[in-house]
Simulated assay, not measured.
Amino acid sequence: MATPLPPALTTGTYAVDAGHSTASFSVRHAGISKVRGTVGISAGTITVGEDLESSSVAVTLDASAVSTGDENRDQHLKSADFWHAEERPTWTFTSTSVTADDDAYIVTGDLTINGVTRSVDLPVAFEGAATDPFGNKRAGFESEIVINRKDFDLTWNAALETGGILVGEKVKIALDVSAIEQN
């Protein structure tokens, strides 16, 4: 049975507006605080079908466009210790299915980071649709997941004198997406 679309969302192709969208992350640092940052969104397409099951998502991120508020840390994240951004600057998410589950939509797909692809389930909230002052029809979406960075061969770490490790394994990823309907 086909799952209907949210009432305000219309069929069509939507381009992710990178200037009004954010891909952010946070990870535990030294076990006592969190480091937060963003990764640049290069491109994205959301195709809304007649029902959820015929819809799809494809997004490309730029690993070299990282910002944590500390240039030295950003350079370290881009290095071979972490993201290999010079060799593998592109991260991608390509959906394999879109379904509904209680109050959220589940977009299952292949997430590729650091050259490693894993299937993930993104719980997505549709935040609504509106026409902006320039006549563009926009749709908004949010999602948040936690991944284990080691699943993507992001294994660099350092032991602390007091015990424990410098960089946590769990990384929270939050997406806030604004997309513009294409004519």
Rank of each mutant, 00 (worst) to 15 (best):
P4S: 06
P7H: 02
D17C: 12
H20F: 08
S21Y: 07
S24A: 15
F25H: 06
F25W: 11
S26D: 14
R28I: 05
H29P: 09
K34C: 03
V35C: 00
G37E: 02
I41S: 06
S42V: 10
S42F: 08
T47Q: 14
V48W: 09
D51S: 15
D51G: 10
E53W: 13
V59D: 09
L61F: 14
A63W: 02
S64P: 00
A65Q: 15
V66G: 06
S67N: 14
D70W: 07
E71N: 11
R73K: 05
D74H: 01
L77M: 02
F82W: 11
W83R: 00
E86I: 00
E87R: 14
P89K: 09
T90Y: 04
T90M: 06
W91F: 14
T92C: 01
S95K: 10
D103L: 04
D103G: 08
I106N: 06
I106K: 12
D110H: 10
L111C: 02
L111H: 09
I113C: 07
G115L: 02
R118E: 09
S119G: 11
V120D: 00
P123F: 05
A125K: 13
F126M: 04
E127F: 03
G128Y: 04
A129V: 13
A130S: 15
K137R: 15
A139Q: 10
F141L: 01
S143W: 00
S143M: 03
S143D: 04
V146E: 02
R149L: 03
R149M: 00
T155N: 10
N157R: 01
A159L: 03
A159S: 15
L160Y: 03
L160V: 07
L160A: 03
T162M: 13
T162G: 08
G164P: 03
V167Q: 06
V167T: 12
D176Q: 10
V177E: 10
E181I: 00
